[in-house]
């Protein structure tokens, strides 16, 4: 299930891409879900755990992946219990956040209202208000009422 908390919270990583650079494991990169996310968000192909083929930048290292896809991998693989700031992710990461939350209880931190409009069957628990939202309209209405950012 996806849980969303707006505003500053304890145990949250504000800028996940740097945390990723210093904690990721090679096996995360070649995981089938990572390969799909990198292909979709970064439009790049995983050649191996240390090399990615980017149509823009050529052969790049893992550190050159987008902040969005690094944050997604942390959401998927990190087991420290940290909460990651999904405001480091663009709206093109929303469907992957939801995909990850189907497999595990995932709490994300937001400092802006992310759009989940393109996510089929979207629902989430809003920690700030304790309400369950059953679609993206309910989510936007509820997020609009929450003052914390």
């Amino acid at each position: 299930m996806l849980k969303i908390v707006f505003g500053d919270v304890e145990n949250a990583v504000y800028h996940p891409p740097v945390y990723f650079d210093n904690t990721y494991r090679d096996e995360w990169i070649i995981d089938p879900l990572s390969v799909k996310m990198i292909r979709d968000v970064d439009r790049s192909e995983v050649i191996g755990p240390k090399v990615i083929d980017s149509p823009v930048l050529g052969s790049i290292s893992v550190r050159d992946l987008s902040g969005g896809v690094k944050t997604l991998m942390l959401m998927k693989f990190d087991e420290t219990g940290k909460i990651f700031n999904a405001s480091a992710c663009g709206d093109n990461c929303a469907k992957w956040i939801y995909e990850i939350s189907k497999e595990k209880d995932l709490t994300i931190n937001l400092h802006h209202i992310m759009s989940f409009d393109d996510v089929e069957g979207f629902e989430a628990y809003m920690i700030n208000t304790g309400k369950m939202v059953r679609n993206s309209t309910e989510y936007v209405d509820e997020a609009f009422r929450i003052e914390e950012r």
Binding site: L57, C89, G90, N92, C93
Partner: peptide, 26 residues
Amino acid sequence: SRVFFEFDIKRNITVIRGDSATGKTT
């Protein structure tokens, strides 16, 4: 040698946002 950015700035504060992997950090 790989990327070319071209844009105009005309006020004291400009904000860039949008999807991931569009080149902001680059």
